[in-house]
Write a protein that binds this DNA or RNA. Structure first.
Lengths: 228, 228
DNA sequence: CGTGCTTTTGAATAGTATCAAGGCCGGTGG
DNA sequence: CCACCGGCCTTGATACTATTCAAAAGCACG
């Protein structure tokens, strides 16, 4: 698995100079992570950043009362652990949703590489800026939406992150509890909202799987909040 | 007002090489902005970034239904408009809370400067990473907290941003409506919560001014949510 | 010293969380 | 193969929380 030949289009490493690309390729390590396993824990010392070569993860943050919150869903090509960059400890944890493969680059290599490749720093800066904008739009939406609307948001977010299969069902459906952990509610409320959406003809249900005949109609339900 | 002699400690410009510092100093412009005035609007084309030389701002985002949300409060030394960097239009607007003075750097100068000064890009990247972490912690807290708890959060946030005067009252008190716009509720609920907090002895009230005898006691009220 | 705005308060209503019970489903072991 | 178990999902009842509406009081400013 070397970086020069990696087909991963989104990986920021490709902005390196050829010399640094070779160096990073040599220094990085390659990890596998089976389903439902922690890639790194909240509170663990920051050792570097992870790039998803193949797989899906949820990024979680736990409150002192034990409630877990899903901060973000991530798939192939995305970076994990960058939130900790510059910190001592990871503010969040990452859990694989399926069997996954991940590249790891240690902190020293990252910092050196950033300092010698303005284009990479610049690209990462824009990546963070974009993430920040999305995070703040979500924060606004969550401050203003009712629970049912936030659940619609979570369905759209999941559908757009993991995609739909040929029958228009969300790939890798999350559990009701996981939806609740995105929104900050409980499984009962998710269940009730799904039933309501099904009755309105906005979604279909097959076991825990959620089908979306027309995602634009679903988006129209929460159009009043500028959330993207 | 030249950058070489500017006393503003937090300004990221100081990470430039001396040559670029001189160049930016020449190219930047200096603006004044009176109280309750828009520095830039939501949806306006992105022309550059702003640095608060002196003053206080609220950063707002409006939903299609007209509800306004306060994304962030900013004071002297902080950067504004950076959320739009790389975009076509500002996703948010900035309104001055007091008479203010601001430096403005156009987009082209910024981009050139970033590409020639890896240290600045790097510093900005870390700034964004930090903002992102804070934004996500706030998003989690808001997903899990009840309204009253979010109001406590807003009080602490305002107190820490603008500081307390010698009588332990928040400098530049926001209106009830502005607190509501941080939290995503209404003025009535803010008023009720303040009364409740006063009765518990956690705050004091004098007109619209909020006094905080011991901010640590206030923080203890929401300690179960890892929000900082 | 009005006028218009914000703030406070109460009452009615709507929305949400919590508790409890039963159903469904997949996996395990007899 | 089937009974059983444990987890997740669904549903209803109830208690709690928050929003909305309305009205009065307070305050700032011309």
């Amino acid at each position: 698995m070397n970086c020069q030949k990696c087909l991963n289009q989104n990986c920021f490493i490709k902005y390196c100079s050829p010399k640094w690309l070779a160096l990073i390729s040599e220094r990085k390590s390659f990890l596998t992570c089976s389903k439902n396993q922690y890639l790194f824990y909240e509170g663990q010392p920051v050792t570097g950043a992870y790039l998803i070569f193949k797989g899906e993860f949820k990024i979680v943050s736990t409150s002192r009362n034990g409630r877990q919150h899903i901060v973000r869903l991530a798939k192939q090509g995305q970076i994990l652990g960058h939130r900790g960059y510059g910190d001592e400890f990871y503010p969040i944890g990452a859990i694989s949703l399926v069997n996954s493969q991940v590249c790891f680059i240690d902190n020293n290599s990252l910092t050196e590489m950033f300092m010698h490749n303005a284009a990479v720093s610049y690209h990462m800066m824009r990546f963070y800026a974009d993430e920040l904008r999305k995070s703040e739009l979500r924060a606004k939406a969550f401050a203003q939406m009712k629970t049912a609307e936030k659940i619609i948001y979570a369905i759209i977010y999941t559908a757009e992150t993991f995609g739909l299969n040929e029958e228009k069902f969300i790939q890798h459906p999350l559990s009701r509890i996981e939806f609740a952990e995105i929104v900050g509610t409980n499984a009962e409320q998710v269940s009730r909202t799904l039933r309501m959406l099904k009755q309105k003809g906005l979604i279909s249900l097959k076991g825990r799987k959620i089908g979306i005949p027309d995602i634009e109609v679903l988006k129209a339900e929460i159009k009043d909040y500028h959330w993207h």
